[in-house]
Each structure stands twice: as structure tokens, then as C-alpha cells.
């Protein structure tokens, strides 16, 4: 085990994180009064009855942000180890990281110029 021990704490946090919402819902189910009637059980949106099927296509305007976010997420994967070892590395390594960021910055500027970061 040894080196796996920190993951035991992660596991405990996951279990606590699962327990709290389950407990909240379970307690509400057990303690809450249940007097259902036809009006209470009906499906509604914003106070009025739904028209048609509720499993429909929603317009995800910000899918471009998700695409751009994915790229910068992968960038993080490379930059995180670089940042961790920055203390023990020289000025040369700092510039290498900056070059890495600058190359990707060109992509961000391109996306910006194309108006991709606007809500359209």
C-alpha cells in the first residue's frame, strides 16, 4: 500500500460527498408529508403546462467555449508538471514554458478575432 495511502483520504471524501446528498434526499423522503393530487403531480414549466415533448434539443450557444476549453484543458496537463518543477529549474525552463503558452495564445487571439467568444 504505502504510496496509495493518500488515495484512502480521497476515497473517504468521495464517500462523504456521496453520503450527504443521499442523506438529504432520504431524510426528506422519510419525514416529508405526502399528499399528492392531480395538480401537484402534473408536469409544468415556469408555472404553465409543457407543450409537446420535454426531451427536445436545447440550443447550446456556448459549444465553442467547450471546444476552446478542451484545448486549454490539455494545455494544463502539460503546464502543471512544468509549474511543479519550476522551483528546481533555471530561467531557461521558464522561457520554454512561456513559449508554450505564447504559441497557444496565438490560437486564442485567432478565436477572439473570429468573434468566437461572442454570444451569437
Amino acid at each position: 500500500m504505502g504510496s496509495q495511502t493518500p488515495w484512502v483520504y480521497v476515497g473517504i471524501f468521495v464517500l462523504v460527498g456521496l453520503f450527504i446528498p443521499i442523506a438529504a434526499i432520504a431524510i426528506a423522503t422519510f419525514l416529508g408529508p405526502k399528499k399528492p393530487n392531480a395538480i401537484k403531480q402534473s408536469t409544468y414549466e415556469c408555472g404553465i403546462e409543457t407543450v409537446g415533448d420535454s426531451w427536445i434539443q436545447f440550443k447550446a450557444q456556448y459549444y465553442i467555449f467547450a471546444l476552446v476549453f478542451l484545448i486549454f484543458d490539455v494545455e494544463t496537463v502539460f503546464l502543471f508538471p512544468w509549474a511543479v518543477s519550476l522551483n528546481s529549474l533555471g530561467i531557461f525552463a521558464v522561457f520554454e514554458g512561456i513559449i508554450f503558452i505564447l504559441i497557444l495564445l496565438a490560437g486564442l487571439i485567432y478565436a477572439w478575432k473570429k468573434g468566437m467568444l461572442e454570444w451569437a
Binding site: W82, E96, F100, Y110
Partner: peptide, 28 residues
């Protein structure tokens, strides 16, 4: 930290590290 060191050492993975940036730029 060892991985980070390897990524910016010219004799190790410096070139793939910078090429990865270009690859991400192309994808973006």
C-alpha cells in the same frame, strides 16, 4: 516534478513539449 523536469530538459522531451503546443494550436 520529475515529469516537469523531463518536459523542459533539451536532452529529454523539450521538442515534443513544444511540438505538442503547435499540435494544440492546430486543433484549436
Amino acid at each position: 516534478a520529475k515529469l516537469g523536469e523531463a518536459l523542459v530538459t533539451p536532452n529529454a522531451y523539450l521538442l515534443p513539449f513544444e511540438v505538442a503546443s503547435v499540435l494544440l494550436l492546430a486543433a484549436l
